[in-house]
Nucleic acid binder design. Structure first.
Length: 278
DNA sequence: CGCGTCGCCTGTGGGC
DNA sequence: TGCCCACAGGCGACGC
């Protein structure tokens, strides 16, 4: 499940790999992944002939900045992948929904079996009017806030910690995996109210947030058994080997050795150590 | 306002 | 061997 660290790894890889390349041809087999556009022609016409200048990330959104102020926005949803093909004749993986072919040769392919992800284009000057980007909260990697600002932000909302960490309008980029890992690292329970934390707990949560995200990027993201996330080269990440709680039900807590607990929270699996997280 | 639940999707794997 | 169903979960919509 691509969250901030995975999208950041993809951004860095692609910045190096497709930055400066010119889009010669765009193929879109189905409408599902470009559902915001009225038709394929509209989407394709905005991309063909334009050059990729640089890549930017906002939370889980990846932004390809093109010539003429045009921006190609990608959200990978649950199962989206951006895959590089050095040669156009490489076999197409099933569920490939968008194919960009470069004048310099090679392709960038958007593959997404569960189709929760999407691609859409913002035309020149339209960035501020894009609501889901405008409403995103602070990106913990792009815009570091001080821990006391972070504490003030938490006081404004009086909500459960896990839901708050995953709220893209509060912090941009965290999902189910990293919110569980951050809460474990901070020793805080998922249902603690955001305005109930002591100064020390706020500081611990803030430090856990920053360190977990940085570590996850360092280890190139988390790839679970379903291989949902791979980098543009098709290679998995390594951070799953460093998870303390996520997907480790029954295994001993790395801190106290009591078994990791799994529970359902709002139709999602949530992992924690009930002894260490209070 | 917070909070829970559902629908959108498809591949995978367990039970029978 | 096949069939059914639970599960994976980001996110918006909806109801209380």
């Amino acid at each position: 499940m691509p969250e901030l660290p995975e999208v950041e790894v993809i951004r860095r890889d692609l910045e190096r790999d497709v930055g400066g390349k010119k889009i010669k041809k765009v193929e879109v087999p189905g409408m599902r992944s470009i559902r915001r556009h009225p038709n394929k022609k509209h989407f394709i016409g905005l991309l063909e002939g334009r050059r990729i200048k640089f890549l930017d990330r906002r939370g889980k959104f990846l932004l390809f900045h093109l010539d003429d102020g045009v921006i190609l926005v990608t959200h990978l949803g649950m199962s989206g992948q951006l895959l590089r093909a050095k040669q156009s004749r490489e076999k197409l993986a099933k569920h490939t929904h968008v194919i960009l072919t470069f004048t310099q040769g090679g392709q960038l392919r958007f593959r997404d079996p569960r189709t929760f992800g999407e691609m859409f284009i913002i035309e020149k000057g339209g960035l501020a009017a894009c609501r889901e980007l405008a409403e995103l909260g602070v990106d913990p990697l792009e815009t570091p806030v001080s821990w006391d600002d972070f504490g003030r932000m938490m006081l404004v909302r009086k909500t459960k910690l896990k839901a708050l960490l995953m709220d893209q309008k509060f912090l941009a980029g965290l999902g189910n995996i990293y919110s569980d890992e951050i809460l474990f690292a901070a020793g805080l329970a998922h249902d603690r109210k955001s305005d109930s934390l002591s100064t020390q707990e706020v500081r611990r949560l803030y430090r856990s947030l920053v360190e977990t995200i940085q570590d996850a990027v360092k280890y190139r993201g988390s790839t679970l058994e379903d291989n949902g996330y791979v980098d543009p080269n098709g290679d998995p990440g390594e951070f799953q080997h460093h998870h303390a709680v996520y997907n480790r039900e029954g295994e001993p807590c790395p801190r106290c050795r009591k078994p990791i607990i799994r529970r359902k929270l709002g139709n999602r699996s949530s992992f924690c150590c009930e002894a260490c997280q209070v």
